[in-house]
């Protein structure tokens, strides 16, 4: 199990990787969403705010009404934010569950795919 602090550290790295990737920023330029992440095993929750493809903030806890809700284990979240996990594979295996439109599911996966194409 990953702690809340570990996930926040992973999120900090994820934010930098996302925001510095020009290709990703171009692709997601119209994508503004509020995301909620729920770690089922630890009950930890996180909120991430994406404005025009830029991750402007993230924090522990659930704030606002989300456009996307992602539910999984704390370990999966930690690995995903560090770029060590293929979210699509976990999604297809039912280990990551997403409440969102199909377009948003692809866009969420696109982040990992663009930043870490080998994953």
């Amino acid at each position: 199990m990953a702690t809340s602090q570990e996930i926040l550290e992973a999120l900090a790295d994820y934010q930098v990787q996302c925001n510095e990737n020009k290709r990703l920023r171009k692709m997601q330029r119209d994508w503004s969403k509020l995301l909620h992440f729920v770690a089922e095993d630890t009950k930890d929750t996180f909120t991430m705010n994406v404005v025009n493809g830029e991750i402007v903030s993230f924090e522990a806890g659930l704030n606002g009404t989300p456009d996307i809700i992602v539910t999984s284990t704390s370990e999966n979240f930690c690995d995903m934010f560090w770029g060590d996990l293929n979210p699509s594979q976990k999604y297809l295996a039912g280990e990551i569950r997403v409440k969102a439109s199909q377009e948003d599911v692809v866009r969420l996966d696109a982040i990992t795919m663009i930043i870490w194409p080998d994953v």
Partner: peptide, 26 residues
């Protein structure tokens, strides 16, 4: 979207998961 996911899952060749650089569509 199914083919895209299959590409990401290494069931189809990886290029099936290529996304459009501007529209993020497979």
């Amino acid at each position: 979207r199914f083919s895209y996911a299959m590409g990401r899952d290494n069931v189809l060749p990886r290029f099936f998961s290529k996304l459009h650089p501007s529209y993020a569509t497979p």
